[in-house]
């Protein structure tokens, strides 16, 4: 009987001791771990308590950046804003980032769209535009007058004879690779490059285009990419 009571007491103590807000100091500033099982209101209450209880700091002391970890809790933009203002109001803290393990479905889909490799098997002919959000893997050619656009990289297994625009939303790291590189124009992010006015009889086989350190589009051997853009190796999807 007595053991039972003791056990009960101990459980009670543990739950009572369990804190919703844990503060940890790291070399980059403070990290606030916010519990993800309690209700949002409880969390707010305890956060306010915790931050106001501790000792007063001089008003002109420097701002401390705070990293919020909210675990498996989804915060709406309004809630995020609420937390930010609460923390800013009570202490000389400023929230530098909020990290949550949870994504909304739309965010997840958007993320997928932007990072997935879309494979398309067709010939992009004159007057046609093929536009994908993520990386494009084209199994076919781009004929003169045809355009391919991708938010990420463009890989063409056939011949590129039209226009290719990689990194459409401003990604300067994006690359364009083609088995036969004879484009009329290459565009990466906001940089543009066009074919020379004279005709060359060079091989132009297995080549890639990227933006170099001078902010110019350069065309070179495909094999160089592994050194220039090691990020292209993705056994798992990149973040």
């Amino acid at each position: 009987m007595s053991i039972f009571v003791e056990l009960f007491v101990e459980v009670n103590v543990v739950t009572k001791k369990k804190q919703y807000v844990t503060i940890k100091g790291t070399k980059d500033g403070l990290t606030l771990h916010l519990d993800d099982n309690c209700s949002y209101d409880d969390l707010l209450r305890e956060l306010e308590e915790k931050l106001t209880v501790s000792e007063k700091i001089e008003p002109d002391s420097p701002l401390v950046s705070v990293h919020l970890k909210v675990g498996n809790r989804y915060l709406t933009p309004e809630q995020e804003e609420e937390l930010r203002t609460l923390i800013r109001r009570t202490k000389n803290f400023v929230v530098s980032s909020i990290e949550s393990n949870v994504l909304t479905k739309e965010e997840a889909l958007e993320w997928k769209r932007k990072t997935e490799i879309v494979s398309v098997s067709k010939i992009v002919r004159s007057g046609q535009v093929l536009h994908v959000q993520g990386d494009l893997l084209l199994i076919g050619d781009v004929n003169p007058g045809g355009t391919v656009i991708a938010g990420g990289n463009i890989f063409i297994l056939g011949a590129l004879r039209g226009i290719a625009h990689a990194g459409y939303y401003g990604n300067k790291e994006a690359v364009i690779a083609a088995s036969v590189m004879k484009p009329t124009q290459l565009r990466i992010s906001d940089v543009m490059n066009r074919a020379p006015d004279y005709k060359t009889d060079e091989g132009n086989e297995m080549e890639c285009a990227y933006i170099d350190e001078h902010n110019q589009i350069v065309v070179d051997r495909l094999q160089l990419l592994m050194h220039l853009r090691p990020n292209l190796t993705r056994l798992e999807r990149r973040m």
């Binding site: 010939i123 002919r125 004159s126 007057g127 046609q128 004929n143 003169p144 007058g145």
Partner: peptide, 12 residues
């Protein structure tokens, strides 16, 4: 040939 390519694209 360029125009033929355009037309083929439309026909497809």
């Amino acid at each position: 040939v360029r125009d033929a390519d355009r037309i083929i694209g439309l026909l497809e």
